[in-house]
């Protein structure tokens, strides 16, 4: 077999491609890097410079506003526990990473999802790409991320975005396609333009589904923080990673628990955001 068909030099092709991109588009990567870096820094600055008690009250109020009393109580107790265990600062760094990744996922993912919903050819190209992004082991695209963006938080965010964005795209596409055909017909029959149809009919009706996608993206971004810490992203992931390398069971559990609390918090709050808005508007 191997004599008849020599191995395809796929590995070298990919390396060349990455090298080519790095040489010719270095400036682009620098700009992206600066943008992402400063976004993370901004979030970090806000979360770490404000006193922890103020933030805990703030998050609790937010949880109460979008969710119910139970969510607010959990937020209060969970955040107090994190502060008590001494993981407050790292948790806020993690939150900054996750929010940045989530934000980018929405900014790119929602329009991409809309495009997929409006054009079958685009959808047919994008769907396998999303499968690729979600199934390729996350470690693998850490490597080119380091190559383009160096070590630290930026490649961590990039890797998180690649891993976390697909649900937003998929569910935006799905939500728009699920709008009943007769409502699309009604919208067309009254002479709306394509954009009017999108903003007045399709997006409002797809909102719940899109928010479910955003929620999934944020959860996936959080699940990437441990992996991202391997290339120098700070936060709770770094604590877990250190505990693993030192086989420190106690620290590992504490840091892991902090991640779980953050995860549940983010999940409940974003989930209820989607629902709440829907109740208010219809």
């Amino acid at each position: 077999m191997s004599e008849l068909f020599p191995k395809l030099p796929l590995d070298r092709w990919v390396e060349r491609l990455v090298q080519y991109l790095d040489e010719h588009f270095g400036l682009v990567f620098d700009v992206i890097s600066a943008g992402i870096g400063s976004t993370v820094d901004l979030f970090s600055l806000i979360f770490t410079s404000l006193p922890d008690w103020l933030l805990i009250i703030g998050f609790t109020l937010l949880a109460y506003k979008v969710g119910r009393l139970r969510v607010a109580l959990f937020t209060l107790v969970g955040l107090l526990l994190i502060a008590n265990l001494g993981y407050w600062e790292h948790s806020m760094e993690t939150l900054a990473l996750v929010l940045t990744a989530g934000l980018i996922s929405i900014v790119i993912g929602v329009p991409a999802g809309i495009w997929c919903a409006r054009n079958d050819s685009v959808r047919n190209v994008v769907t396998p790409l999303l499968d690729f992004m979600q199934t390729m082991p996350a470690f693998v695209y850490l490597i080119p991320a380091i190559f383009f963006f160096g070590l630290g938080k930026v490649p961590g965010v990039i890797a998180s975005v690649i891993f976390a964005m697909p649900p937003t795209i998929r569910l935006t596409n799905l939500g728009i396609r699920q709008v009943p055909k007769e409502l699309i017909e009604a919208s067309d029959a009254f002479g709306s333009t394509s954009w009017q149809k999108l903003f007045k009919v399709q997006l409002p009706l797809a909102k719940t589904t899109i928010m479910a996608g955003v929620n999934q993206s944020i959860m996936l971004a959080l699940s990437m923080v441990v992996i991202a810490s391997m290339i120098g992203a700070k936060g709770l992931g770094a604590d877990v990673y250190r505990a693993v390398t030192q086989i420190n069971i106690g620290t590992g559990f504490e840091a892991g628990l902090a991640i779980v609390i953050m995860a549940i918090l983010l999940d409940r709050i974003t989930q209820n955001m989607g629902k709440k808005k829907n109740v208010q508007e219809g």
Binding site: E182, L183, E185, A186, F190, K200, L205, G282
Partner: peptide, 14 residues
């Protein structure tokens, strides 16, 4: 042209 639909086709969010 105005149109009226069999299953009403009202926008549920409005």
């Amino acid at each position: 042209l105005g149109m009226v639909f069999q299953k009403f086709a009202l926008f549920p969010h409005r």
